[in-house]
Simulated assay, not measured.
Amino acid sequence: MPIPLRLSLVTLGVADVARSTAFYEALGLVASSASTEAVTFFNTEGPVLSIYGREALAADAQVPAGGSGFSGVTLAWNLDSEADVDKATVRVVAAGGLMVKAPEKAFWGGYSGYVADLDGHLWELAHNPGFVVDAAGRLRAPD
């Protein structure tokens, strides 16, 4: 019997935990009481989002901390409408994030754009009419 894959926690390695915590709080997230100076946890509608020092995260994984540019990973924030994508984009930029690609109609039938947080982590802000949100509030791809 296969072990179920549950994406439960996403950890972002950042240059300054306090600065990044303030950025995500400006987006409306609330730090968990389990947070410390070294790590911040935010509950989301999906996995827990964790903010942790980049150097400490690399040391924990026993990999080099250096490197920059596109890491091959983006995070997605799926929203209920195109208007919500636009509003979220404005909110991220107002909090100090960078607009990487303005929201636009996407080739796959939805609407999306890209922003980056203070450490360059890419977030796709998207409305995908082909995916549904289930009764538990989770985004579900078609079967």
Rank of each mutant, 00 (worst) to 15 (best):
A59W: 06
L125M: 10
Y111Q: 03
R54Y: 09
S8F: 12
Q62D: 15
V132D: 05
N78E: 14
N43L: 14
T89H: 06
V93W: 04
T40F: 00
L98V: 12
M1Q: 10
E37V: 10
L49Y: 08
S35H: 05
A58V: 10
A116S: 07
A65Q: 09
E37L: 11
V133G: 04
A136M: 06
Y114R: 06
L57V: 10
G120M: 07
D117H: 05
S112V: 06
S71V: 15
F131S: 12
F70V: 10
K105P: 05
L79D: 00
D80V: 14
A126R: 00
K105W: 07
L125W: 01
A94L: 08
L118Q: 02
Y114K: 05
R91F: 11
A94F: 11
M99C: 13
L5G: 06
V10Y: 00
L27V: 11
P47A: 07
E82D: 14
G69S: 13
D84W: 08
A61L: 14
A59M: 09
E45T: 15
P47G: 07
A88M: 15
K101I: 11
K101Q: 14
A18Y: 09
D80P: 04
W108F: 15
T89N: 06
R6P: 01
F70A: 15
Q62S: 14
T36Q: 06
V48L: 05
D143M: 13
G53P: 02
S68G: 15
G66F: 11
G69Y: 11
A65V: 15
R6A: 13
A65M: 11
L139F: 09
E82I: 05
W123Q: 00
W108D: 04
G13N: 04
V10G: 03
D16I: 06
G28T: 06
E55R: 11
A102I: 10
A136V: 04
F41S: 03
V85A: 02
V100W: 00
A18T: 12
L122V: 14
H127S: 08
L125F: 09
G109E: 09
H121E: 07
D60R: 12
W108Q: 04
V115T: 11
V93N: 03
Y114W: 07
M1R: 08
V30Y: 04
T11Q: 04
G97R: 00
P2K: 12
G53W: 04
V93R: 02
V133L: 05
A76D: 08
S20W: 04
R19P: 02
L27S: 05
A116Y: 02
A18V: 11
Q62P: 01
G13P: 02
R91Q: 14
A95D: 04
S68V: 14
L122H: 07
A106L: 03
N128P: 05
E55G: 08
G137E: 04
R54S: 14
R140Y: 06
V14M: 04
T11L: 07
T74E: 10
G109V: 15
A135H: 13
W108L: 08
F131L: 12
A106C: 03
V30H: 09
S50P: 01
V115R: 00
L7G: 09
